[in-house]
Design a protein around this nucleic acid. Structure first.
Length: 280
DNA sequence: GTTTAACCCTGCACGC
DNA sequence: TGCGTGCAGGGTTAAA
C-alpha cells in the first residue's frame, strides 16, 4: 500500500470511525497476530490503551496512519504490503489472517487483516511520537504545502542516487512505493537509473508535477488494486487506478505513448518497469 | 555515501 | 496431482 491507498483509507476512517468509542479489542491467538502488535510484549499492554477510548482524528504521515484517541494516545498503523482495515460487524465472518478486532460501542467493528504480516500497529503516547524511530525518518510528504519544486530540486542535487531508489526511499520523500515510482518516472520521461544530481531544472519540474498529478489522480481513483494483490478500501471495495497504469506490470506490452514494448529490470531488489523510448 | 543482499511472511504461478 | 522453487512487496539492517 502506497500513499494514495493509505490516504483513501485515512479518509474513509475519518468519515466512518471518528467519533466511535472502542468497547473492546481482541488480538487473536495466532503467532502472526502477536507479530502484528510486535512492539507490545503483551496483548494487554495494547488492548488496555484502546478499550474505552474514542477515536478523535485520523492523520497520515507517509505510509503511516495515526488514529488519535481521546486519551491522548495514538494508534499508529503501517499496512506493509498486504495489511488493511476492514469495517464489519459481529455477523461478518472473519477473513483469513484477521489479527485484531476492535468492537465499537455504537455497533460494528474495525478489523486489521494482514496475510503477509509486514504490517504492524502499536499505541504510543502522542507526545512520544517524536521518539518513534520510523516516524522520525518519514521524509517530506509530496502532497504537503511545503513540498515545492525548489525544495525538491535542492534535495535531489544533494544526492547522487538512482532515481528509482531515491523516490522509494521514505527518508528522502515519503509515500511512493514500487508502483507509483515507476509511473511517476514514466510520466516525467526519466529512466529508473538516472542519477538525481544530473536532472535539469526542467526535468525536476516535470518530475515534481508528475508526482503531484499521479498521486492526486490515484487518490481520486481510490487507489490501485492489482489482480494478485488484495488492496481494497475500508468497505472491501477495490480501487480503479490500475486502469490508468502506463508501465507498472506491463512488461512486453506496447507503451501507451509510442508502442515500444515496456521493459522490466531488477534494481535494488525491486522490479522497475519503463519504456526505453520515452524515458532517458 | 551508495548499493547489495538477506530477512520477515504468505500466496500464487510455474515447471517437472 | 502434487511437490518444490521462485517471486512479489515495504522496510530495516548488516555488509560490501
Amino acid at each position: 500500500m502506497e500513499l494514495p491507498e493509505v490516504e483513501v483509507m485515512r479518509r474513509d476512517l475519518e468519515k466512518d470511525v471518528v467519533g466511535r468509542r472502542i468497547k473492546g479489542t481482541e488480538v487473536k491467538s495466532s503467532k502472526n497476530a502477536m507479530r502484528a502488535i510486535r512492539r507490545h510484549a503483551k496483548r494487554k499492554e495494547f488492548t488496555s490503551r484502546l478499550d474505552g477510548r474514542k477515536v478523535t482524528k485520523v492523520e497520515r504521515r507517509g505510509k503511516y496512519v495515526l488514529m488519535n484517541l481521546d486519551s491522548s494516545d495514538v494508534l499508529v498503523v503501517h499496512f506493509g504490503m498486504s495489511g488493511r482495515f476492514q469495517r464489519a460487524n459481529g455477523r461478518t465472518p472473519l477473513a483469513p489472517h484477521t489479527h485484531v478486532v476492535m468492537t465499537f460501542q455504537q455497533g460494528g467493528d474495525l478489523r486489521f487483516v494482514d496475510p503477509r504480516t509486514f504490517g504492524e500497529m502499536f499505541v504510543s503516547a502522542s507526545d512520544e511520537l517524536g521518539k518513534v524511530k520510523e516516524l522520525q525518518h518519514v521524509a517530506i510528504d509530496p502532497l504537503d504545502q511545503v513540498f515545492t519544486w525548489q525544495t525538491f530540486q535542492y534535495l535531489l542535487a544533494e544526492r547522487a542516487a538512482k532515481m528509482k531508489q531515491l523516490l522509494m526511499d521514505q527518508k528522502f520523500i515519503s509515500g511512493l512505493g514500487n508502483i507509483y515510482s515507476d509511473e511517476v518516472l514514466f510520466s516525467a520521461g526519466l529512466r529508473y537509473d538516472r542519477l538525481s544530481n544530473t536532472l535539469s531544472s526542467q526535468e525536476v519540474r516535470r518530475l515534481y508535477r508528475a508526482i503531484q498529478e499521479i498521486l492526486q489522480d490515484a487518490i481520486k481513483s481510490r487507489g490501485t488494486t492489482l489482480e494478485d494483490e488484495a488492496y481494497v478500501d475500508l468497505f472491501g471495495k477495490p480501487g480503479e487506478f490500475q486502469q490508468e497504469l502506463k508501465v507498472y506490470g506491463r512488461e512486453g506490452m506496447p507503451c501507451r505513448r509510442c508502442r515500444t514494448p515496456i521493459q522490466s529490470v531488477k534494481i535494488g531488489g525491486r522490479s522497475a518497469y519503463f519504456c526505453p523510448q520515452c524515458q532517458s
